[in-house]
Design a binder for these strands. Structure first.
Length: 217
DNA sequence: TGCCAGGCCCTCTTTAGGGCCTT
């Protein structure tokens, strides 16, 4: 049995990831500049991975202004391929979560492909879940929804580890709210993935009818 | 800095358009 599985064969570990990059999409030549991953078990962060990556791709000034990551910093960083191989080993077969997962999943796949490593991981998205669970929030940007829920804000947003920690905190809060408000006993990754794809009017019914163990696998 | 990309979601919708979210 995988170390990330509990005794029912369900994933007890979720890997929360955040990338800093040189742009919006690998399709336009953007590459990762920093990656951070935190492992969450039972609402607790149990391990952390963080590294800058050297890809040789130039970082535009506005990205440096946003993230604080400079071309000089990544020039001294380890090669991206080695970092990503280490990141893949760190994640193992744990399912993954990111804030706006479509963005991070693209870079996860792209960077692992560069490193010649398969990327079969399933992603769930805290933006989509946040819109489902907290429709009263006026903004679902990571910093804003964290503040809205009264969760601790990172001292340095737009760095990978700080953002991954905030996303992990948001994930844990959503799991707690599913337990307390919806009485879901074990709100695991598969249920979160189902919720994020569920049409909003059906969310309540899904949770009210929730009794299917495989949903939390 | 503001645009781009792309998927999701809402609505004054569905033969569409525009906002959100990520760097």
């Amino acid at each position: 049995m995988s170390p990330s599985m509990d005794n029912r064969g369900m994933h007890s570990t979720i890997a929360v990831i955040d990338f800093e990059t040189t742009g919006m999409t690998p399709a336009q030549g953007a590459r990762a500049t920093e990656v951070a991953i935190v492992l969450v078990q039972n609402g607790q962060v149990v391990d952390r991975f963080q590294s800058l990556l050297r890809t040789g791709v130039w970082i535009p000034p506005f990205i440096t202004q946003l993230t604080g990551i400079t071309n000089a910093m990544v020039a001294e960083a380890p090669a991206a391929e080695g970092v990503m191989r280490d990141a893949a080993r760190f994640v193992g077969d744990a399912p993954m979560v990111a804030h706006n997962a479509a963005f991070d999943a693209k870079f996860w796949t792209h960077e692992l492909t560069h490193a010649d490593v398969p990327a079969p991981h399933a992603f769930a998205c805290t933006v989509l879940l946040s819109r489902r669970l907290y429709p009263e929030a006026t903004s679902h940007k990571l910093g804003n929804i964290v503040q809205h829920l009264g969760l601790p804000r990172a001292a340095r947003a737009h760095r990978a580890l700080a953002d991954a920690e905030m996303a992990a905190s948001l994930l844990t809060r959503m799991q707690q709210d599913l337990r307390t408000h919806w009485r879901v006993e074990n709100p695991g990754h598969a249920l979160l993935s189902t919720l994020q794809r569920c049409a909003k009017p059906k969310v309540g019914k899904l949770l009210a009818d929730y009794a299917t163990p495989q949903l939390v696998a």
